[in-house]
Design a binder for these strands. Structure first.
Length: 152
DNA sequence: GCCAACGTTGGC
DNA sequence: GCCAACGTTGGC
């Protein structure tokens, strides 16, 4: 099964990329939208996520990896909501702004642009690679491996 | 089951 | 800080 790609948004003053790096990993809580939640639930171990700073910055600043698949959101009694765990993989060398994404015809149709209010959106492989390339960023070898443990 | 009111998100 | 987009809620 091919790896999937996603984009997850956080307001940097709420939970910034640098905090994820400092924490080592975190559970991705606070999603209260069914479609976003369904995207969380579709995430598989080893999927890669573009980490986007919304509101302030409006740019892709890092790549994170799903290190635990979805489970009930521990911050609420409401069993409708789920979280996943993510860990940082690599910072984007040159953050890719929303303006740059919109200006690129290959990216203008991204769910990020079309569904701007959705906080967890799918990204296709081509879009993912294009953003990394715009960000002058290469994935470390370890993240290229399919999954930890590497089974078929 | 429709739809108006309301709340939230996020770009500008 | 404003406002557009849009998801959710609740009255009927």
């Amino acid at each position: 099964m091919a790896r999937a790609y996603w984009l997850i948004k956080s307001e940097p003053y709420k939970y910034a990329w640098s905090e994820l790096v400092a924490d080592g990993s975190t559970f991705w809580d606070g999603v209260r939208n069914y479609e976003a939640r369904n995207n969380l639930r579709a995430m598989k171990l080893g999927d890669l996520c573009l980490y986007y700073h919304s509101n302030k910055g409006k740019e892709v600043v890092g790549v994170a990896r799903v290190c635990a698949e979805s489970y009930p959101d521990p911050t609420t009694e409401d069993d409708r909501w789920s979280v996943v765990d993510v860990e940082p993989v690599v910072a984007v060398a040159e953050p890719v702004t929303l303006a740059a994404i919109k200006a690129d015809p290959a990216l203008a149709e991204m769910a990020l642009v079309r569904r701007s209010r959705l906080s967890v959106v799918p990204v296709d492989r081509v879009e993912f690679q294009q953003i990394l390339s715009m960000g002058k960023t290469k994935l470390p070898r370890a993240a290229m491996a399919k999954k930890r443990g590497g089974g078929k």
